[in-house]
Design a protein around this nucleic acid. Structure first.
Length: 548
DNA sequence: AAAAAAC
C-alpha cells in the first residue's frame, strides 16, 4: 500500500505548464476532445454492426440546441407552477427542465429567496448566509421544495444531479428548528431534532460542510456522526444540545442498538439519495432509524435524482400525505452533459483505449468509474506505471484517512484522473469535474445517471464517455435509451437492440418506468419485497447479536 | 443480479 502511495505521489506531480497548454488549447478548440476520442477508434477493429461512429457523425447535434440557463429554468418554473399530472409521458424533445408536482394543497413555489422572509419569516441570518455563500436565485427544486417543507409537509423530491437538492432540505430544516438547542430558550424538549441520512461517508461529510455554511454566526450543534462523535453523544447532557445529526444509516443503527442514542425528539428526517437508502441492502438499516424517530410531529422527506418504481412505492408508504415534485424527466441526466458510448471490443482493449485518451489533450479533472475496488486500485496503478500524471484513487476499501485525503486532493484540483467505484457515484459535488469515463459499464440506469451526474453540475458543461464491450451488449439498449431521452444522438441500431429479458429489465430498473406512480396494483408485490427485506434485516441483526 | 457501501 505504501509503495502504491509513493508511486502515486511520484506520478502525481503537478505539471503546471502542461496544464496551461491544455487549457489554452481547449479554450480555442472546444471540439478537440471529440476528435481525440475519434482518433482512438482507429486502433480498434469494429464489427460493422457495432461501429458507433459510423452512425454518430457530428456526435451530439441534437443536444446543441439545448442551452439551459438558470434564468430560463426559473421562468419556466414561474409559468408552470402547479401542473398536476405526471410528466413521464411528455415528449423527450421538451427542451427545458420543467417541474411537475402532485399531492394535496401544494404550496406555490418561491421566486426568490427573499420571498421566504415574508411568507415564512425565515431567520435573517439564514438569508444573509445564503447570499454570502453565493446562493442568489433558487433552482427549480429549491423554489418548490423549500416552501413545501416549511409548511411542514412530507415530500418526495426528484431532481437531476447538480441542481441543488442539499440546500432544498437544509434551508427549511434549519429555519424550522428556529433557535439552536444551545440557546437558553430551550429547556422543554430535549434531544436531537433533525437527522439527515446519506449512503456514503463522503456524502455525509459534504452535507455537513454545506450545513455549516448556513449555520455561520449562530451556535448550532451540527454533528457529522462517526465513531468518535458517537462516543461523546453517549452523554445525555451533550446529546440533548444537538440540533442536527448527519450520518450514514449503519452508524446510527449501531448507536441505537447500543442504547447510546435516542431519536425520540427528532422532528425532521431527510433521506438523501433515497432510492439508494431504500434499496435491499440499506433498507433494514434505514427502517430502523425511521422507527426510532417516534416523535408525533416528525416530518419526513426523500430526495434523489432517480427513484425507480419500487423505491418510490416504499418512499410513498413512509410519507404522510406527501407531495411529489419532479424536475425534468425522472431517471434522466441533465441535457448539458455530452454523452457518448464507446465500443472497446473486450476487456483487454479498455486500458489501451483509456491510455490513448489520456495521452491526448483532455479537460481535467476527470472521474473514471470501475466496477470493483480491486479494479479501481489496479487501474490506478496501471495508469501511474504508464506515466499518466496526477492519478488518484478512491474506494471504500481504503482507510478513512486515505479516503479523506483523496477527496481533499480532488477538491483542491490536484487530481486530474480520479479512479473510483460506486462510492463516488452519488451526491458528490466536485464543481470542476469536466468529464466522466465509465471504464466499466454501469449495472443500472440509476447508476449511469448518478455517475455521469458528477459532471455538468450547476449549469456547467460536462462530458461523459461510457466504454462497452461485447459482454455489455444486453444492457446497452437501456443506457442508449437514456442517452436518447436526454437529447444525445444514439445510433439507431442500439435503440433497436432486442429487449432484454424481463429479469434483465428489472435489473436495469426499467420495469414500470412509464407508469411509475402505482396506478396498477403492484402494492402487494412491494409489500412482499419489504417484508422479505425486513426478515433479512432481522436475521442479520440476530446473527450480529449472536456474535456479540 | 451483483458490487459497493454501511459498522
Amino acid at each position: 500500500m505504501e509503495a502504491f502511495q509513493l508511486l502515486c505521489r511520484g506520478g502525481a506531480r503537478f505539471d503546471k505548464q502542461r496544464f496551461k497548454e491544455n487549457l489554452a488549447l481547449f479554450d480555442s478548440k472546444k471540439t478537440a476532445s471529440h476528435r481525440a476520442e475519434k482518433s482512438v477508434s482507429e486502433n480498434a477493429e469494429l464489427p460493422t454492426e457495432l461501429d458507433f461512429f459510423k452512425y454518430a457523425k457530428g456526435g451530439s447535434g441534437k443536444r446543441k440546441a439545448v442551452e439551459i440557463e438558470d434564468e430560463e429554468l426559473e421562468t419556466e418554473v414561474q409559468r408552470k407552477p402547479e401542473l398536476d399530472h405526471d410528466s413521464n409521458d411528455n415528449a423527450p424533445e421538451k427542451k427545458r427542465q420543467r417541474v411537475t408536482t402532485k399531492g394535496s394543497d401544494v404550496p406555490p413555489p418561491i421566486v426568490s429567496f427573499n420571498d421566504l422572509q415574508e411568507r415564512f419569516n425565515l431567520p435573517k441570518r439564514l438569508l444573509s448566509n445564503l447570499s454570502s455563500n453565493n446562493y442568489v436565485n433558487p433552482t427549480g427544486i429549491q423554489a418548490h421544495a423549500v416552501p413545501i417543507l416549511l409548511e411542514g409537509r412530507d415530500l418526495a423530491a426528484i431532481s437531476p444531479t447538480g441542481t441543488g437538492k442539499t440546500l432544498s432540505y437544509l434551508l427549511p430544516v434549519m429555519s424550522s428548528l428556529g433557535v439552536p438547542m444551545s440557546n437558553s430558550k430551550h429547556d422543554g424538549s430535549d434531544g436531537v431534532r433533525a437527522v439527515i441520512l446519506a449512503p456514503t461517508r463522503e456524502l455525509a461529510h459534504q452535507i455537513h460542510n454545506e450545513c455549516l455554511k448556513l449555520a455561520e454566526g449562530r451556535k448550532w450543534r451540527i454533528v457529522l456522526f462517526s465513531k468518535a462523535t458517537a462516543a461523546t453523544l453517549a452523554v445525555k447532557s451533550v446529546r440533548d444540545k444537538i440540533d442536527i445529526i448527519i450520518s450514514t444509516p449503519l452508524r446510527l443503527v449501531a448507536s441505537l442498538q447500543d442504547g447510546k442514542l435516542v431519536l425520540n425528539n427528532v422532528r425532521h428526517l431527510v433521506l438523501d439519495e433515497a432510492d439508494r437508502l431504500l434499496d435491499s441492502e440499506f433498507i433494514s438499516q434505514t427502517e430502523e432509524v425511521i422507527a426510532a424517530c417516534t416523535h408525533p410531529e416528525l416530518q419526513k422527506c426523500v430526495f434523489s435524482a432517480t427513484l425507480p418504481a419500487g423505491a418510490e412505492k416504499i418512499a410513498m408508504s413512509l410519507l404522510m400525505d406527501p407531495i411529489r415534485v419532479v424536475v425534468g424527466l425522472k431517471d434522466t441526466p441533465l441535457p448539458l452533459i455530452v454523452q457518448s458510448l464507446r465500443y472497446v471490443a473486450d476487456e483487454s482493449s479498455k486500458l489501451p483505449t483509456l491510455l490513448t485518451y489520456l495521452s491526448q489533450p483532455y479537460n481535467p479533472p476527470i472521474l473514471v468509474f470501475t466496477s470493483t475496488q480491486p479494479r479501481a486500485s489496479s487501474l490506478a496503478e496501471q495508469l501511474i506505471l504508464n506515466s499518466v500524471p496526477n492519478v488518484d484513487c478512491l474506494h471504500a476499501g481504503m482507510t478513512k484517512k486515505e479516503r479523506e485525503d483523496a477527496v481533499s486532493r480532488m477538491r483542491k484540483g490536484e487530481s486530474w484522473v480520479m479512479i473510483s467505484t460506486e462510492v463516488m457515484a452519488r451526491g458528490m459535488d466536485f464543481k470542476g469535474i469536466r468529464g466522466v469515463i465509465n471504464y466499466d459499464f454501469p449495472t443500472s440506469v440509476q447508476s449511469y445517471v448518478h455517475r455521469i451526474g458528477r459532471t455538468g453540475r450547476a449549469g456547467r458543461e460536462g462530458l461523459a464517455i461510457t466504454y462497452f464491450t461485447n459482454e455489455d451488449a444486453s444492457y446497452l439498449k437501456a443506457i442508449a435509451n437514456v442517452l436518447s431521452q436526454s437529447g444525445s444522438t444514439v445510433p439507431e441500431w442500439m435503440l433497436k437492440l432486442p429487449k432484454p429479458s424481463k429479469l434483465k429489465r428489472r435489473q436495469m430498473g426499467k420495469v414500470n418506468r412509464g407508469d411509475a406512480v402505482s396506478k396498477a396494483g403492484n402494492i402487494g408485490r412491494s409489500l412482499a419485497i419489504k417484508r422479505k427485506d425486513m426478515v433479512a434485516g432481522s436475521k442479520r441483526r440476530k446473527a450480529k447479536d449472536k456474535d456479540e
